Simulated assay, not measured.
Amino acid sequence: MDLLTPDFGLIFWQILIFLVVLFVLSKFAWKPMINGLNERENSIEEALLSAEKAKNEMAQLKADNEKLLAEARRERDHILKDATAAANKLREEAREQASHEGARIVADAKASIDLHKKAALADIKEQVATLSVQVAEKILREKLSDDKAQKEYVSKLVKDLNVN
């Protein structure tokens, strides 16, 4: 039964050795382990803070990118609107210029036609006058070929002059 109930001396030495081992472990083993655990805890906390900071920065960058994209879209829409307006203005100006040019060409053509028409009428009048003179000359030569006819014609002309 001695083995089941230890002596007071054995208990004393076991407690003393336990306290010495406890002191040695606390002095040389637990402090470095606790310091290592504290350092690891701090590094994990710093890593979590860095990750949170990076996450916030990424969210900020994403918001900035979205803002830049929206700005670029507005700018693109504005440029397209301006380009469309400029194209419409150019098209309208070209249409007006073509209309004015067409009206000018038509007016020039009418003026040219009128000029040619007047020239043709003047030429026709001249030809008619020339033909009339030639016909009258032939008629007068034929009628006034003898002296008696010439005297009658002259007296008729003098008579007409006196009446007028």
Rank of each mutant, 00 (worst) to 15 (best):
M1G: 13
D2H: 12
L3M: 02
L3P: 00
P6R: 09
D7N: 08
F12K: 06
F18W: 05
V20Q: 05
F23W: 13
V24F: 11
L25N: 00
S26N: 12
K27Y: 00
K27D: 00
F28L: 02
A29G: 08
K31R: 10
K31C: 00
K31F: 01
I34V: 12
G36S: 09
E39C: 01
E39A: 10
E46F: 10
L48G: 00
L49E: 11
K53M: 04
N56D: 10
A63E: 15
D64T: 07
N65Y: 08
E66N: 11
K67G: 03
L68I: 13
L69N: 11
E75R: 06
H78F: 09
I79V: 12
L80I: 07
K81M: 01
K81Y: 01
K81V: 01
K81S: 02
T84I: 03
T84M: 05
A85M: 07
A87L: 10
N88R: 12
R91G: 00
E96R: 14
Q97M: 06
S99H: 12
H100T: 08
E101Y: 03
G102L: 09
G102R: 12
A103M: 13
K110D: 04
S112A: 14
I113F: 08
H116G: 04
K118S: 06
K118Q: 09
L121E: 15
E126S: 15
Q127F: 04
L131K: 11
V133E: 07
Q134F: 05
A136E: 06
I139R: 12
R141L: 05
E142K: 13
L144T: 07
D147Q: 11
A149L: 03
Q150I: 12
V158C: 04
D160H: 11
N164Y: 14
